[in-house]
Nucleic acid binder design. Structure first.
Lengths: 137, 137
DNA sequence: CTTGACTCCGTAGTATGGTACAGGCCGTAC
DNA sequence: GTACGGCCTGTACCATACTACGGAGTCAAG
């Protein structure tokens, strides 16, 4: 059976060597067997595992959440519904973040619209709005 | 002239005492004069300054950006357009974040829709999609 | 057999925005 | 005068996800 060094694994998965070790410390990937020199000998299955982590990260899961996701499927009690639940929670998180960003954007747009973009900073309606008391004393 | 202790300042601005000291270290508020005991004696103007910081944070500015915003208005060369520019950059940042979140959400929704939410985790289309190789070996 | 690339471990540092002590001094009310 | 809170400094710690570094051992090619 073929094994890979940490460098090969990192290369195939498109991550850094340090990242692989970091994921091991964090419990996201199994500790691989070692050769007599202490070198890690990875089964090739670690590569798709790393890709899994990568994709889940792209979907906005944190490493802790990904760890949960990974452990979910080791538990025979877990159902598909459990996984779906995680995904739906994450969707709700994302919606909440988007709401917050929309609020911010709306406020900022309003501020920039109120500003002609000319004149000295003393008269800037943007700073005025942020700070109705402190300036112009 | 009235001065405030750090506790009073924090209370009026609705932040923690440690936060006030932290902002001082970070250069967001001036170092106040000290009494003979070493106690900080704040002018009341520090309160609106803290509120400014609070509002700017709510708009999504980082502490570093807020520091820039604060220094902008000390510079007589600064124009209103400079401030407007910062706000517009921030709006662009927010738009970018929202795009990214929309992408994530879309992918997640697609995954949850593909999942009936029943059955064992081995057959979960969500995990399958994250990881087309590793499982079911 | 040497050289260079790779790996090992442990520790520390990055950015962000604080929060939490410990140990000691200060100020005020009773 | 003494007790209790508030304040002082400095340091360490929280989460997040890595990244860097030093010093030493190892592997493979030439």
């Amino acid at each position: 059976m073929t094994t890979l060094t940490i460098g090969k694994v990192a290369e195939r998965a498109g991550v850094g060597v340090e990242t692989v070790r970091f994921y091991e410390r964090e419990g996201l990937i199994d500790e691989p067997p070692r050769g007599p020199s202490g070198y890690r000998h990875y089964p090739t299955s670690v590569v798709p595992r790393l890709l899994f982590i990568k994709r889940a990260k792209e979907l906005g899961f944190t490493l802790n959440e990904i760890k949960e996701l990974l452990s979910l499927r080791l538990d025979p009690e877990t159902t598909c519904a459990d996984v779906k639940q995680r995904a739906e929670t994450k969707i709700a998180d994302i919606k909440e973040k988007m709401r917050s960003l929309r609020r911010m954007k709306k406020a900022l747009v309003k501020l920039t619209e109120s500003c002609r973009g000319r004149g000295p900073v003393d008269d800037c309606p943007i700073l005025d709005a942020l700070d109705p008391q402190e300036r112009k004393r």
